[in-house]
Amino acid sequence: MWLPMLGLTALPHLGGLYGGFVTRKEVKTWFPSLNKPWWRPPNFAFPIVWTTLYTGMGYGSYLVWKELGGFTEDAMVPMGLYGLQLALNWAWTPIFFGAHKIKLALIEIVMLTGAVGATMVSWYPISSTATLIMAPYLAWLCLATALNYCIWRDNPEEEKEE
């Protein structure tokens, strides 16, 4: 039973590694040129926070998967919503940092936050522990959404031309 736990816990980190690769250059070049709110967390906080959140959401998905007996018919909705939010999570970084599409990233992160909320609602009857593990992730996304909004609002000319 260790392999599914390790695999599902590690899965979110795959997109995180790719996101780190996309972000690395832009954090040194493009991102410093943007107007950002004073309350933005420092750059060093992001990898620490995301490593913690990815580990938590991955382990939460394992708890739900285990409670439902694997990828059964009953798991379609809760694990499908989890997969949707994970795909949206992984897509945000290439949109924001890779393509410099601040407004599109804002729309995307709002959809992501909704998908995380829906995932949590679907998980609650299955595992309240897994749902509570996702709460810091939802809180961080609310902060990240506000940050994305402020950057979009304060940098209207920063969008890359088509």
Rank of each mutant, 00 (worst) to 15 (best):
76 M>T: 10
151 I>P: 00
56 G>I: 01
50 W>R: 07
1 M>T: 12
132 L>H: 03
7 G>E: 03
103 K>Q: 14
37 P>Q: 15
21 F>H: 12
160 K>M: 11
66 K>E: 12
65 W>V: 03
13 H>A: 02
137 Y>C: 05
121 V>W: 15
76 M>V: 13
9 T>N: 12
37 P>L: 09
44 F>P: 00
35 N>L: 13
23 T>G: 05
151 I>L: 06
47 P>E: 14
79 M>G: 00
65 W>C: 06
9 T>A: 11
136 P>Q: 09
142 C>G: 09
27 V>L: 15
75 A>E: 01
125 P>R: 14
97 F>R: 05
79 M>R: 02
61 S>W: 06
146 A>D: 04
74 D>Q: 10
91 A>Y: 02
9 T>K: 08
95 I>M: 09
48 I>N: 09
109 I>S: 00
153 R>N: 11
84 L>W: 03
99 A>C: 09
129 T>H: 12
60 G>K: 00
6 L>G: 07
90 W>V: 13
73 E>I: 06
42 P>C: 03
151 I>M: 15
136 P>S: 15
68 L>V: 02
10 A>Q: 03
90 W>D: 06
41 P>F: 08
126 I>S: 02
119 T>N: 10
32 P>S: 12
117 G>F: 12
84 L>Y: 14
22 V>A: 05
43 N>G: 07
55 T>L: 13
32 P>V: 12
29 T>F: 04
144 A>S: 07
149 Y>T: 03
70 G>A: 12
114 G>M: 07
111 M>C: 13
58 G>Y: 00
62 Y>D: 01
130 A>N: 14
24 R>D: 10
101 K>S: 13
115 A>R: 01
122 S>N: 14
117 G>L: 09
156 P>W: 13
70 G>C: 10
112 L>G: 08
72 T>C: 07
20 G>T: 04
159 E>K: 07
20 G>A: 11
34 L>A: 11
44 F>T: 10
154 D>G: 05
